[in-house]
Nucleic acid binder design. Structure first.
Length: 429
RNA sequence: GUGAGUGUAGCUCAGUUGGUUAGAGCAUCGGAUUGUGGUUCCGAGGGUCGCGGGUUCGAGUCCCGUCUCUCACCCCA
């Protein structure tokens, strides 16, 4: 083979395409039934737009290039900046709440590994203009609605939920300076990913004071919302954050997805822009990276030059999800073949033109119909019919010449019977 | 970007301490079968052994480089 595919990309042969469509079609279907409207943007944007939020170092993770007018551009690594740009442009005319979704194809120049490629699809849903954590609950509901629709249950996946606002308030209460907050977030995020000893060392590097460190360790051992009461002395901000989480979990219970959701103080999310509720969705085997994640980012529009309007949302990629669905055998109902309804075969070359007419009529009537280019022995044509997984065969033979009849053969039972051509087509409609 | 492992037919893999013309199963195509398929039988095509150097009389096998894929780190929007 002369030219190989590019590192981290995938070829979608029909059987792979069937799986990709299964995933993406369901994303769209579930979004729509949850009240979200689809949008999309260009596949490349100004490089500066991506640097705005994440700084210059992001450039090494992007596929960037210059066009002939020396514009510095980049292939989109995420769609959220595009969303912010589009919403800002029409913010005064869009009815709120804005509930939008998209299934963009994204590229990131990272080294591929399990569940992460350089080109992938990511489902994004966002709700803009709602302060109430009901919007966060609805985003989580929509994600769970999707996962259930694929056949996954609360035995397979879990949504781990926490609050940036809560952690910020508590860390402030512990006396940790605002400047050091980002670094501590980074360490907390590692809690469930590294051995306890390593975690301890990382925390030591981030927080020099051992008393403060002890309080953080105490906090990280909290397993339920109720245990947070022991930090009640931490002031109004912390109390508000706890109340918000309680309210969220109440909504989740009312919506009937409580068994999918857990409070988990260790969920921080890497990025700086989250401001409130945050969550990540995991496969319960814990062997994979997150299936998806999201949360509240109330500064999103403002960061991109718009008004300060609250927003919450989530993203889910197709790579990890695909691995999970494959492992659980949930792709099994997907047909990789064409599922031809009628395969028309002809007993003699003199009937070829009549066969083509039948095919055309069947197709215009909306049936998936096909036939053999080569013709030849009836047995050969039926073999081809089996190869394309045809449900039924239409046999055009002597009966057609003599009585205008065709034979309909059911390919799974083997049963067959003659039928008048006119009657056959009138039944189709 | 750093580190480790890997690579033989479309797929899954054999291939002896380096020794003739590199094999099998599955898949594909053809035939048995000119009015009856999917399960049977027979046959065929398909490989510059990832690519490039080197050692050797001789390399799929040993050495170096490079690329891919896999796994971990960085990062994870």
């Amino acid at each position: 083979m002369e030219i190989q595919s590019v590192k981290g990309t995938r070829d979608f042969y029909p059987e792979d395409m069937a799986k990709r469509n299964f995933i993406a079609d369901l994303w769209k279907q579930v979004s729509v039934r949850n009240g979200f409207a689809e949008f999309d943007g260009p596949i490349f944007e100004y490089l500066a737009m991506y640097q705005l939020k994440s700084g210059d170092e992001i450039s090494s993770q992007l596929f960037s290039f210059e066009d002939r007018g020396e514009r510095k551009l980049a292939i989109r690594p995420e769609i959220t900046p595009t969303l912010a740009r589009m919403v800002n442009q029409r913010i005064n005319t869009l009815p709120r709440p804005i509930k939008w979704f998209s299934v963009p194809r994204l590229c990131r120049a990272e080294r591929p590994q399990k569940g992460r490629l350089r080109e992938f699809f990511q489902w994004n849903i966002d709700i803009i203009g709602v302060d109430d954590c009901l919007a966060d609950a609805e985003v989580i509901f929509c994600a769970v609605d999707y996962l259930q629709q694929t056949g996954l249950t609360s035995n397979d996946v879990v949504v781990r939920i926490s609050s940036r606002r809560l952690i910020a308030a508590l860390l402030e209460c512990f006396g940790i300076e605002k400047q050091g907050l980002e670094k501590v977030y980074g360490v907390l995020d590692k809690k469930s990913k590294v051995p306890a000893e390593t975690f301890g060392k990382m925390l030591e590097e981030a927080i020099s004071d051992s008393a403060k460190r002890q309080k953080v360790l105490e906090l990280m051992s909290v397993k339920t919302l109720i245990e947070l009461e022991s930090f009640a002395g931490c002031g109004e901000k912390a109390k508000e954050a706890v109340d918000e989480l309680k309210k969220l979990f109440n909504y989740l219970e009312i919506m009937g997805i409580k068994e999918f959701c857990r409070f988990d103080i260790g969920i921080v999310r890497g990025l700086a822009y989250y401001t409130g509720i945050v969550f990540e969705i995991y496969d319960k085997s814990e062997q994979l990276r997150a299936i998806g994640g999201g949360g509240r980012y109330d500064n999103l529009l403002a960061d991109f030059g718009g008004p300060k309007i609250s927003a919450t949302g989530m993203g889910m990629g197709d790579c990890v999800l695909g691995i999970v669905l494959e492992e659980k055998g949930l792709f099994k109902n997907i047909s990789e073949k064409n599922n031809i309804e009628y395969f028309v075969v002809y007993a003699d070359d003199s009937l070829k033109n009549e066969t083509l007419k039948l095919i055309a009529t069947l197709r215009r009537a909306g049936c998936k119909a096909d036939f053999s280019y080569k013709g030849g022995a009836l047995g050969k044509q039926l073999k081809q019919a089996s190869a394309v997984n045809a449900a039924k065969c239409v046999i055009v033979g002597d009966e057609f010449t003599q009585k205008k009849q065709i034979i309909i053969k059911n390919m799974s039972s083997g049963e067959q019977s003659p039928v008048d051509v006119g009657e056959f087509f009138s039944k189709l409609r």
